[in-house]
Every structure is written in C-alpha cells, then in structure tokens.
Nucleic acid binder design. Structure first.
Lengths: 335, 335
DNA sequence: TAGGTTTGATCAAACGATTGAGCAAACGAT
DNA sequence: ATCGTTTGCTCAATCGTTTGATCAAACCTA
C-alpha cells in the first residue's frame, strides 16, 4: 500500500502537489512536466488513495448500508442488483446487513451510523415488522430511506406500485372468466400487504365482483405460510376458483400444498403470484406472475438515500416505470 | 457524532484519559472518580469511536469482502449466514460484493484492498471461472481465502466434502435398487464439479457399478443448464433410471423439463440433488437432497481469512463436520 | 530596472483516535 | 528533611489525505 508520500518522494515533489494532481483539482496550477512525473510515479507504485484517511477528512465514507430481513426473499436479488448498480454510478458501495429481526437491526444500524461506517441506511422492512418498531431506530439523526414501506415522519421511502400490480393479476383472472377470486396476502401488519389488500378490493370492485372475505387470507409471504393459506382455503365449503398470491415464494408453497391436497393447478384453481423470480419459471406448473419493478426499486432507493445524505430532502416515491407486467406461464386457465 | 474531545471537555479531562478509559487499556492508571466521570460523559453524549480514525490509526478496518458470483446460487444464503455470524464473533463486518464475471471482480477486489477498505477477501468462485482467472487477482499481496475452490499457490481455501456428498446420493440410489445412474454435473472447469465427478466415480465403483459415460453431463449448475441436461439424457436410446444432480437449482430446472417431456419423477426417474435449500421442499415432487455443511463452510471460511490476516498462515481446509446428510423427500423411488 | 502579477510549487493545520513519553503531585523510605 | 517511586494525568506525534495560506521565481508592464 503506497501513500502520497511515497509517490511524492518518487516524483521528487511535495505531497500537496501529488494530492492536487491525482484528485485533479481544478485550481491545481501544476506544470505539465510535473504532472506527468507524478502520474508516472503513481502508476508505478500502484497508488490508491487510502479509504480511511479520506473518510476521516471528509466525514463521509461513500458507503450505504442495505438492511434486509431475509436473503431468500423473492424481492431481494433484483433489489440488490438495482441498489448496487445505482451505488456504483454514484460512487458508493453497499454494505449488506441482514437482520432477521428488527431489534438487533436497530442496534446494528445505530452502530453503523454512530461509528461513521456508513453515510446512510436503506431499510427493507420485513413483513413481520411493524412500523412502530422502526420509530426508535430512525429518530431523525440517521439518513434513512425505507424500501417498500412508509412512515409519515422524517423518513423517506420508496415503494412499489402494489395496487397496480394486484390489479394486473385480478384483471387477468377476470378476463379468463373467473368471478370467485381469493387473495393470499402477507401479514396485515406489513405495509405492502395493506397496499395489496386495497389494490385487490379496488380491482374487484372495478370488475363488478364481490369479495368473499373467507377467500382472503393473510398468513405471510413465506412458502410455509402459503401452504397454510392453501389448507385454510381448501377446508372451505365453497372455494375460490382463482387466487392472487401476494408473493411468489408463498405461491410456491401453496402450489405444493395444492398438489398434496389433490387440487389441480390450473384446472381446479388458477394462480397468479406477485413478483417474478427464477423459481416461478421452474415450478410446476410454471407460475404466471406479475413482474414488479424491483430493479428500479433498488435504483431509485439508492438515488433517494443519496439525495437524503446530501440534503435534508425527504420524499416518498412510488416506482411507476416500468409498470407491473403480467408474465404469462401455465398456472392460470379459463373458467 | 460526538468525538473524544467532546467527551473530554464534558468530563473535564484530556482526550488521552478518555481514550484510555473507553478502550479500557490495561495500563490505564486512572482514578475511579475520573473513570466514572468519563464513562458518564461518554454515555451522555452517546459516544461511538469513529471508524475512519481507528482504521487510519491501525491500518485495519475489521471488514472483509465476500465476493460471490451470483446471489441466487443455492449455496449463497447459508454460506453468507455462516460468514456473518463468525464475523460478528470475531469483531468483523462483511462487505458483500457481487461479481457476475471475474474480470470486474478482480478490479473491484484490487480497489477494495488497494484503498484499504477491507482487510481481506473471501472469494466464492463461480463455476464458469477457471482457476487461472484468479491468479492475477491474488498475487500474494491480498489476504484471500477461496471458498469451495483450491489453488496450489499462496492462497488458502476452504472446501466442501463434495466427494462424500455425492457418495451419500449414490448410496441412497443404490439402496433403492438403481444400477443405471447418471450424473448431472457443473461445468468441467469448476473445481467443485471435478471433485463431485471424482466422488461419483468412486462411489459407483465402490457399489460395483459401471458408469455409462453418456449418462454424465456437465452443462452447469443453473436451472437452464439442468433443463439442457434433461433434454440430452432423454434423447438417449438407453436412459438412466436415476440421477445425481450436482446442484439443487439445476435439479429444479431438470424437474420442469422432465415434466415437459412426460418423464415421471420418481416413477420413471429418481433424482437426488446436492445442496438442500428451501426451494427443494417446495418443488413437485419435493426433492430428495444431500444437505452440505454450508453454514459451517461460511464460518470456517471466515475463521480462515481471520487467521490469514493476522499471520501468513495459509492452509486448505475441508469442512467435515457435520457430514453430508441425506434429506429424504419424494423424488426417489425403488427400482 | 523597479514594481506588480502570475505561475508552480510547498507549508502546515485539520479530521479523530491511539500511545509512548513526560511531568507534577503524592507517597514512602531512610 | 531529602530523595526515589508510584500515581494520575497531559503532551505531542502519528496514521494518510485535503486544502487554504504562503512564498520564491519567473514573467509582464511602464
């Protein structure tokens, strides 16, 4: 690890000169010859400016933390990709912090920011975290942006067009002639689940259909919870002919349970899942899904925390481009 | 963000005293009263030592990078969990760096280490990366440990008991009466694939079975490549009755292709996949797998890089505890 | 050629924490 | 009472980088 002094010594100049040249400050006032010698020396020594020294000097690390509840969550991979790419463009790096529950997460975040390891925090709230859990964590001092969750106080947020996504799913089922449609939702405590619930109600109403409350479950987004939902629904005297499943992971579990129960998909039951993931294409039957703009969610979240770090600006953004898109596979059939 | 000076001012002492108390140096020589005042002041100001300053002082960040080729890889989640937990125990944090291909990864790693952002690098090599690609990256100066891949020069490594894992799979199939067993492997360039290949040969030989070379494919570990393998095998005049699939993701793709081709699993074809993941339990039929010690792989890898950072010690470790374990589900049947 | 401006560089302080060296006060021994 | 030792704390240098202030030399103008 060579330092500015090493380069300066090799080039026979002062470290100030080297610093100005290598950070190409506009007011550098360095002769061409000197500049050349410095650049040569830097290259020869494979100079890289020391991260800690710059962070200390600028009180800024150009690192943001991405706190996620669960790495197996369907939305994680694409989200991460979006965050990372935007971060790279903005000169940032991403420190991934998994946090099964939000209590250690709060401690972790406090530490990360308190020690100045990161300039800001992106928080993807799990669906078992209530909005209140976050209050303590985010009391103003920490630049933070919530991903797919909102709060009305001093914290920015970026959310998905959940209503529109569910509407796409419902419309597809309605077009296939279904009228008896259920919703397999996430836990009611979660923000995204309530948006999806609203979307479901609106879309059903718009289609002139009545919602049978028994057809709406809210066990959670995980495969196990999807299975539970299927069991509950199958126990009903009157069953829905189609389901909108609010998460593709839950849909996978639901699919297995349906098979176990001898319910044929799509012949007995049509399924549309929210979120497209590689697993949907590799299920049987291949799952028809609604692709949500997760990559863009990541990019925009990164842009938002970037703005938040630089100014006090806080806003709540909905990712609208691209719109939720139906990915037609084989889990839905005409009624 | 309060600093040592802030605490010192509040406590009415010098920053040296504060530093010694808060880092509880053994040779502190501070009176009880002063110590108390300092601790109170620190608590009141919510003091956290500045990360950049310490990193600069110690030339050490207590951060390691984990470079993975693909976040959707079956082994990633558990691996990451192991790495993170061991890191936390050792006072380290993990910077996750995704690297689709190894060229940008090399640049990224060079930057990470060159700038002193991380003290070491854990590299999980993708199966499309040849061992040679790594040579340039790891020319000695960077403390690095390869995960599930080996090199014979100045780089440590931690690998899975791949041979044993495949042997467990083969034994299970043999016990079910299968004699015509195939292997769906990763790309031959990858280290793990060649170990699994060796394991397959040994296990078959041990069972007194002949390997039909046509039953061995090596397209890769991804679902698409699993599908390709299934297509190739189904085109054969004589087909295997059972397959060991070297990766659970490939097995998922293979399963879908089998259905598409009208091959019934497990009636026409038994399948055992290497690596257990939540997706295996949520496939149809639920996949019988061999659980590999991925969590331990992560823990031990972190311990290895920790040692490597502190000393020049380099060694190659095989994770042997727990041993690969059969997870019996429904994708295998008696022949 | 004297006086002023521009050019091309260096000096030195600062960021926050650590730590060996130094120093005054209190203490103990003779 | 004098001299060494211990105690309890502060001074100051250091890590590597940035940047306003400074300064000598070269250049321009009248």
């Amino acid at each position: 690890m060579s330092t500015l002094s090493d380069v300066a010594a090799l080039a026979g100049v002062s470290i100030s000169a080297v610093s100005r040249v290598l950070s190409n400050a506009p007011s550098s006032r360095v002769s061409g010859a000197t500049r050349q010698r410095i650049e040569d020396a830097a290259r020869e020594l494979n100079y890289h400016p020391n991260f800690a020294a710059r962070a200390l000097k600028f009180s800024r690390t150009n690192v943001v933390a991405l706190v996620v509840p669960d790495l197996t969550n369907a939305i994680f991979t694409e989200l991460m990709r979006g965050v990372e790419e935007a971060a790279a463009d903005l000169g940032y790096m991403v420190l991934l912090a998994r946090a099964e529950s939000m209590q250690p997460a709060a401690a972790t975040m406090a530490k990360l920011v308190g020690e100045g390891r990161v300039d800001g925090v992106l928080v993807q709230v799990g669906d078992n975290t209530t909005s209140e859990d976050l209050a303590g964590i985010l009391d103003g001092r920490v630049p933070a942006v919530l991903i797919n969750s909102t709060r009305d106080d001093h914290v920015g947020s970026v959310i998905l067009p959940d209503e529109a996504g569910v509407a796409v799913a419902v419309r597809h089922l309605v077009e296939l002639g279904h009228t008896s449609i259920g919703l397999v939702n996430g836990l009611p405590t979660s923000d995204s689940a309530s948006r999806r619930s609203v979307g479901f109600e609106r879309a059903m109403t718009a289609a002139g259909l009545r919602i049978n409350p028994a057809f709406v479950t809210s066990f959670g987004y995980d495969p196990q919870q999807g299975r539970a939902a299927m069991r509950t629904l199958s126990a009903l005297a009157e069953r829905p002919t189609a389901l909108v499943v609010a998460n593709v992971n839950a849909a996978l579990g639901l699919l297995v349970e349906a098979r176990t129960l001898g319910i044929a998909v799509p012949d007995d039951l049509s399924i549309v899942a929210i979120h497209d993931a590689w697993t949907a294409a590799n299920a049987w039957p291949p799952l028809t899904t609604v692709r949500m703009p997760l990559y863009e969610l990541g990019k925009i979240s990164m842009a938002a925390i970037f703005d938040r770090i630089r100014s006090e600006a806080i806003d709540d953004v909905v990712v609208t481009d691209p719109e939720p898109e139906l990915v037609l596979r084989e889990s839905t059939a005409r009624r």
